[in-house]
Design a protein around this nucleic acid. Structure first.
Lengths: 168, 168
DNA sequence: TAGATCCGGATGTTTATTATCCGGAGTATG
DNA sequence: CATACTCCGGATAATAAACATCCGGATCTA
């Protein structure tokens, strides 16, 4: 009943990280089109395409036009952090937007009275920084390792086969 | 044009923290009604009231009915963390909701093949934990100290006077 | 040239947030 | 006890954001 859920990350984040992780295991010259990536993950193709474009603009994915084209990583998986993907899709703005309500109401002072950022704002910014630092400490290569170690063997084999077929 | 801004905290968070900080400097038996709190911060009264009710349910604020009633802190400011306020208003659910898209698509495996949480999910949960830990490390009493130290003297005096008048 | 693919704008749908209102219940004061 | 004041919670509406689709144009491969 009372599940207020702000502080929420869009689904596109999840898609973007999964896609990037999948592309990290492609052979060097391989590429997968948006439609294939959507099929693999069971998500709407037209909308995923939007997020792929954002990842491309951010320099995380490279796009190849024409037949046999699609997307591949634009740089080594060791150089792509989870934060990179999150910020490409969600933007770099901190979660907390200070509206400076301390300057409103009957006791408001002239602008010159507020040389420092709001103390509450600073606390939220700190939290935002550690959140981002945490995401920055994990690379897409790390995720590949995790999946390889923890994933179901049959699932991994099926995935590898699917990729081979998609590239053929 | 491309400011996708998910990972956003509702404005209610800001209001809640400011209100709680203001109530922390009230004399022990004092209380301020919702309308006064809205007036002080220059925010819509009817909507702020909703958030005040959430803070009350969470045990952060105590509500007093009738004339001279209103809200006051339900416990010492040293025992209320910023995280408490954030979770009272925004809920305790982590920002990232894992939709288990690894289980979808053509290479999906039976449910038994996924004993561990998704590796990507775990990374997001870690980041969420450090974010919350950061907010938990600051109390409302700390915020009062910060405002007292950094705030504009004239503004502090005006605020103190406004509170006296409101309680009178 | 033909087919496949990405790109970006326009558009519609759904969901979440923001915001208001009102009747009901509890409480102090005279 | 009556009244004025206040919180409470449900219902409802307005606004903004996220989600989703489609299409014409550009680009590339074979």
């Amino acid at each position: 009943m009372f599940i207020i859920r702000s502080m929420k990350l869009s689904d596109g984040i999840e898609w973007g990280i999964h896609v990037t992780t999948l592309l990290a295991v492609l052979p060097p010259e391989g590429a997968l089109p948006a439609a294939r990536l959507a099929e693999f993950h069971g998500v709407p193709a037209a909308y995923l395409a939007k997020h792929l474009q954002a990842l491309s603009r951010a320099g995380i994915l490279a796009s190849i036009h024409g037949p046999r084209g699609g997307y591949r990583l634009a740089k080594p998986a060791t150089e792509i952090t989870v934060l990179d993907v999150v910020e490409a899709i969600d933007g770099t703005e901190p979660a907390f937007r200070c509206n400076e309500i301390r300057r409103r109401g009957p006791t408001a002072q002239p602008a010159a009275a507020y040389p420092l950022p709001c103390g509450i704002h600073r606390v939220m910014v700190s939290a935002d920084l550690v959140w981002r630092a945490s995401l920055r400490s994990v690379t897409v290569a790390d995720l590949v390792t995790t999946v390889a170690n923890d994933g179901d063997p049959a699932g991994l084999v099926a995935g590898a086969k699917w990729i081979r077929d998609a590239l053929a």
